[in-house]
Design a protein around this nucleic acid. Structure first.
Lengths: 167, 167
DNA sequence: ATAGTGATCAACCATGGTTTACTAAAAACA
DNA sequence: TGTTTTTAGTAAACCATGGTTGATCACTAT
């Protein structure tokens, strides 16, 4: 029995020597751990590749909510479940870092659509390579077939959760 | 090509219609996502089970650094890489919530060892059941054999990272 | 006209850290 | 031995972060 945070739970009868055995016994726990480590690595890689020491997790957290086709600030805020004011600040910083750019919506002059900046001085291609490198490493370790199988299973887990969170 | 944060990277030539296909293509990305979802669920379960709405992530984050045999505050701080003052505050709160208790080290009267409270009004057994439930769910979904295989692979991934982070 | 919406600014707040200063006990050492 | 230095823990002040609310402005929709 292991909790979700890295340390085995225990009962009074549980001996200390059971620790190591149980350490890796929980998939939930290992998934949390893997996620954190990858996240940490991803942030470090992004900072290094883009030469943007100011890039923070909070900025990266915005990525999933920005569409290829451009997204309004209010829309991003709604999707993320936070106020548009806080999104506005983060976006401003990312525009400054040349990760994003803004363009007034011709359909609605109030709305500024947010876009990824894919050219210019912000060399997204180089950063991309680094960000991808861990997946390559995993593929090399597991082999293409095994990689795909684990991916499928982890994806199922994500689906289970997302279904569960619908309520 | 997918980034680590949920949104596909793209190049100018990449069409919008490629999005869905790539959405689940990165194991790194899925692991991050799974980790976050499990984490969220674990916190919610812990709060509910223990009737401790004040329980925060920061408290749970301390768990991995507390030994069964008791651990000193300074040791926890060193392991976690933060100041002992901040650990001290968190531990105090957790003692108040009856999750932990303190005992002066008979070997060293300066040192207070931190222990998990496994009996008394803090019904760890009930909480444990809830915290474990997702692993049961996963086992039911995958079957024991498949669960073990995925666990092994995710554990390997964790090991790869931890080895990498040694430097 | 008037109500609603998109964006932004400023003021404020909770969180989880830090540094600085302190007490008390242990360890090192002359 | 007695003194000095290190270590464990705490408390208080402070700080960066990432949020919030409230106000305002410009534009859109009714």
């Amino acid at each position: 029995m292991v909790d979700h945070y890295g340390q085995p739970w225990f009962t009074k009868s549980m001996k200390k020597s059971d620790f190591e055995k149980q350490k890796n016994a929980s998939l939930s726990h290992q998934l949390i751990k893997a996620g954190r480590l990858i996240n940490k690595r991803g942030l470090a890689a992004a900072q290094k590749s883009f030469h943007l020491p100011e890039l923070k997790q909070s900025h990266l957290d915005l990525f999933p909510y920005i569409d290829f086709a451009g997204t309004g600030i209010s829309e991003i805020a709604k999707r993320k479940g936070v106020s548009k004011q806080s999104v506005s600040k983060l976006v401003k910083e990312m525009v400054h870092m040349k990760i994003l750019f803004l363009k007034v919506d011709p359909e609605d002059n109030r709305s500024k659509r947010v876009f990824f900046k894919t050219s210019g001085s912000f060399a997204i291609q180089k950063g991309l390579k680094d960000l991808m490198s861990f997946d390559c490493l995993l593929k090399a370790h597991f082999g293409e077939k095994s990689y795909t199988s684990v991916l499928k299973k982890v994806s199922d887990i994500v689906d289970i959760f997302q279904a569960e969170n619908q309520n």
